[in-house]
C-alpha cells in the first residue's frame, strides 16, 4: 500500500514552494514512499520514555550584550539581489 498520494505530494510541494510537473509528482510519490517505508523501521523501537535530541551539545540559549552596531552598507546588501530599485529589493506583485 502506498503511504503517500500524488495529491499529498502536490500539497507538500506547495508548502515547500516548489513547482512540480505531473511527471515529477509521480516520481516523488514513488521515491518518497520508498524512503518513508524504510524510515518506518524506527517504529520497531519503543521510545516512550526517551527524550528527543535536537543537537548533541549541552547548550540552550546563548546570550550576549545587545550592543548597537552598524549594519551592512546598502550597496553590499543589494550586490547579489536579482532586482532592486531606489535602494530597495524589488519582487513581483504580492497581490492581484
Amino acid at each position: 500500500m502506498s503511504r503517500i498520494s500524488v495529491d499529498q505530494v502536490k500539497h507538500v510541494a506547495h508548502l515547500a514552494r516548489l513547482a512540480v510537473t505531473e511527471e515529477e509528482a509521480e516520481k516523488f510519490k514513488r521515491q518518497l514512499d520508498q524512503i518513508i517505508t524504510f524510515a518506518e523501521q524506527l517504529n520497531e523501537l519503543d521510545t516512550e520514555n526517551v527524550e528527543p535530541t535536537s543537537h548533541v551539545l549541552d547548550i540552550r540559549n546563548v546570550m550576549r550584550e545587545d550592543a548597537a552596531k552598524p549594519g551592512l552598507p546598502n550597496e553590499e546588501v543589494l550586490k547579489n539581489a536579482p532586482d532592486h530599485q531606489d535602494g530597495q529589493i524589488k519582487v513581483p506583485s504580492i497581490m492581484e
Binding site: 515547500a16 514552494r17 513547482a19 512540480v20 547579489n80 539581489a81 536579482p82 529589493i89 519582487v91 513581483p92
Partner: peptide, 23 residues
C-alpha cells in the same frame, strides 16, 4: 530568488516566482 541567487525571469506574482525559481 529575493535577496541573492537565481530568480526565474517571467513570474507574474510572488508565490509563482518562489516556486519557479526553486524548481
Amino acid at each position: 530568488g529575493v535577496r541573492y541567487g537565481y530568480r526565474t525571469p517571467d513570474a507574474q506574482n510572488l508565490i509563482e516566482m518562489y516556486k519557479q525559481t526553486r524548481a
